[in-house]
Design a protein around this nucleic acid. Structure first.
Lengths: 344, 344
DNA sequence: ACGCTTTACTAAAGCGCTTTACAAAGAACT
DNA sequence: AGTTCTTTGTAAAGCGCTTTAGTAAAGCGT
C-alpha cells in the first residue's frame, strides 16, 4: 500500500517549498507560469489531495454543518434535510445528517460534535419535549445553531423558522366544519411540543367558534409517526359515537389513520373525513388523495440553512422567530358526513 | 468568546501532563483513583471535549463513513441510508449522507473526500451509467468501498450487495400474465444500469415464455424517478392499442404512472394493471395499494454497512457480489384486463 | 554604485491531539 | 543493601496542513 501523497511530496517534486504549494493552491500566492505549471504537474502526477483533517485543524474551521432530524426515513424530514443540504453544499460546506430517533441523548451527541469542532454549525429539527438540556446547549453555542420546523422552549437565542401552526389547525378544522362535520377529533403531536400545542389550539378555537365543545376523548396526543397513529385511530373508531372527521397533526399521522381505516374497511372520505398537516407531494397519490395543510418545506430548509451559514460567516442575528404561512390543499379525503340515523 | 478548553488546560488543572490526560481518557493508562478524580473534575469543570479534527489527524482515522445516494428525499434511498446509518453509528462511526442527484461529479467528489481521509469508507448507491470514472475510483480505493442496490461495471474489486433483479422482473411479469394480460409494457431504469438491464431481461423472458414478442414501443428506459415516469406513462397510454398492464422498474416509476393515470381518469387496476419494484411499506396506502416486487431494503443497508466497517477494520474480502432474494407482494393494483372490444 | 521596490519565494511555528520511548519513586525480592 | 519489578507518570516527536514573518535576488531610478 503506497502512502498517500502529502503536500511535502508535491513540494519536493515541484522543487518548491510546501508553503508555496499551499499558498498557491489556496490562491494566496501569485507565481510565474513555469512554477505554477510544475506544481500543477506534481499535483496531477501524485494525485494529490489535501488531507481533510489536517487542513481543518490548521484552519480552525470544519467547513461542515450538521443537520439533526428525528428520522431521516420519514419523507417530510428527508425533504427538509434534502433542501438544506442543497443550500449548504452550494456554499462549500460538507453536510452530516443525523437521525436522532427522538432520543435526546442522540441530539446532545450532535451538540458534542459541534463543540468538538467537527462541524461549524447545527441545523436542529426536534419534535419531542425538551427537559431543558437542549435549551441549555443551544444557549451555550451562540451563533452556531438554527432551529427549523419547531420551537424549543428556552431556545430563543437561536434563530428559528417555523410555520403558522395555529392558523393551520384552525383552517383545517374550519374546512371540516364547512362540510358539516361536528364531531371532529384531533390526533396531534406529543405533549410539550410547540407545534402540537399550537395546532391543537387552532383546532380548539375553530370548534369553539362553531359552538362545539370538543369531548376530551377527541383529542389524542401521540408521536408524529405512522405506527403509533394507527393505534390512536383505532381508539377513535371505537368511540360511541365515533367522530365523523379527524384532523391529523401530521401527514404521517394521517397515514396511520388511513392504514387503520383500510384495515377495518372504513372508507375515507365516505365514512370519515381526514385532513393532514405537512402537505407532502406524495399525498396526491394516496387512496384517496389526502387533503392537508401544506407547509413551505423547501423554504424552511433553505432559509434555515442560509441563516446558519450566514452566522458561521460571522453575521449576527437575534433569536426572533420567523413564521412562514401555511396553505390548505384540498384533495379527496374530505366529504360531508353521513346522515345520522335518527334514533327512537 | 472564551476559548474552548484544550487537553492542555485540563492537564494543567488536574496537575498532570497532557499525555496522562489523553491516555487516561482513551483507556490506555491506569491511574490511582485520586489522580483519576482530579482529571475527571477538570474535564467536567472545563466542559472539555477533545477537538475532533486534531484527534482524527493524530490517529490517522476519520472514524466516519460516507453514504452516497442518488437522492435522499427519495423514500427508498432514505430507508436504505437510514438502516446503514443505524449500523454505522452503532459501531462508533460518524455518518455523512450525500445526495448525488445522479451527477457523476458529485459522486467523484465523495471519492475525493475518501482520499482526503475525511471518511474511512464509502457506501455507494448509484443508478446511472458509469463512464468508467466511477469504476476506476473504486479500484483505486481497495477495501474502502462497498456498493449496494446496484452494480457498477468494472467495480468488481468492491463488495456488492444487490437483489435478484432478473427474477424480480420475471415474477412481476408472470403475475400479470397469470391475470390474462398480454400487452404488458415495461418502464424500466436507465440505459447502462445493471438493475434496469436485468429487470428488463426478466420481463422479456416471461413474455417470450408466454409466446409474446414485446413490441419495441412497450419498453421505455427512464430515470427511476416519479417525474420523468409521468411522461413515459403518457406515452404508453397514447399507444394504439395501449398496454393493459405496466411493469414499472421501481416504485417511484409506478407512482409516476399512477399520477398520470389519475390525471387522465384512467382507473388502476380496472383500466390498467400495475406492478412496481422495491416494495416500499407505503405502497399499502396508495389508491389502490401498489403490488410490487419487494427488495429486502433493511438487509441491503445493514449488510452493506457491516461489510464496509469490517473492511475498515482490516478484514479482507474479495469482490464476489451477494444477491439477495426478492418477493412479490400482491396488493391491489393488478386485475384481469377488460374484455377487448371485438372489432368489425 | 546605492538604496528602494517588487518578485518569488522559504523557514518555522502552530493547530490539538496521540503515541512512543523513557524515567523517577516506591515495593518486593534476594 | 542491592537489584528488579511495578506503579505512576512525563518529554518530545509527529500527524499534514496553514500562516506569519521574513529574505534573497532582480529590477529600477538616480
Amino acid at each position: 500500500m503506497t502512502r498517500k501523497a502529502t503536500i511535502g511530496d508535491v513540494a519536493k517534486r515541484a522543487k518548491v517549498s510546501p508553503t508555496a504549494v499551499s499558498r498557491w493552491l489556496n490562491g494566496g500566492l501569485e507565481l510565474p507560469e513555469t512554477t505554477g505549471e510544475r506544481i500543477r504537474t506534481a499535483v496531477r502526477e501524485l494525485d494529490y489531495q489535501p488531507h481533510a483533517q489536517a487542513r481543518r485543524l490548521s484552519k480552525g474551521k470544519a467547513e461542515a454543518i450538521g443537520i439533526v432530524v428525528p428520522d431521516i426515513s420519514n419523507a417530510f424530514f428527508a425533504l427538509l434535510a434534502g433542501e438544506a443540504e442543497r443550500v449548504a453544499v452550494a456554499s462549500g460546506h460538507d453536510v452530516m445528517i443525523w437521525s436522532s430517533r427522538n432520543r435526546i441523548e442522540r441530539e446532545l451527541a450532535c451538540f458534542d460534535r459541534l463543540r468538538a469542532g467537527y462541524i461549524d454549525g447545527l441545523l436542529l429539527i426536534t419534535n419531542h419535549e425538551d427537559d431543558g438540556r437542549l435549551a441549555s446547549r443551544i444557549r451555550s453555542m451562540p451563533g452556531r445553531v438554527v432551529i427549523i420546523d419547531e420551537d424549543v422552549v428556552g431556545g430563543d437565542s437561536a434563530p428559528r423558522f417555523f410555520v403558522e401552526n395555529e392558523t393551520g389547525g384552525y383552517e383545517a378544522t374550519k374546512h371540516l366544519l364547512a362540510y358539516g362535520h361536528r364531531r371532529i377529533a384531533h390526533i396531534g403531536g406529543p405533549k410539550g411540543v410547540m407545534s402540537a400545542i399550537e395546532r391543537a389550539q387552532g383546532w380548539r378555537r375553530a370548534m369553539t367558534e362553531a359552538g362545539i365543545t370538543p369531548d376530551p376523548s377527541w383529542h389524542i396526543r401521540t408521536e408524529y409517526e405512522v405506527e403509533p397513529a394507527t393505534r390512536d385511530a383505532e381508539q377513535l373508531f371505537a368511540l360511541d359515537p365515533p367522530p365523523t372527521a379527524i384532523f391529523a397533526g401530521s401527514d404521517a399521522v394521517a397515514l396511520g389513520v388511513m392504514t387503520t381505516a383500510r384495515r377495518k374497511g372504513i372508507n375515507i372520505p365516505r365514512d370519515i373525513s381526514l385532513v393532514g398537516f405537512d402537505g407532502m407531494p406524495i399525498n396526491d397519490l394516496f387512496g384517496p388523495p389526502l387533503t392537508s395543510i401544506a407547509q413551505p418545506i423547501d423554504d424552511l430548509g433553505r432559509l434555515g440553512a442560509e441563516r446558519l451559514i450566514a452566522m458561521i460567516n460571522g453575521e449576527k442575528f437575534d433569536g426572533t422567530p420567523t413564521r412562514l404561512p401555511v396553505q390548505l390543499v384540498a384533495r379527496g379525503s374530505v366529504a360531508a358526513p353521513l346522515k345520522e340515523k335518527v334514533s327512537g
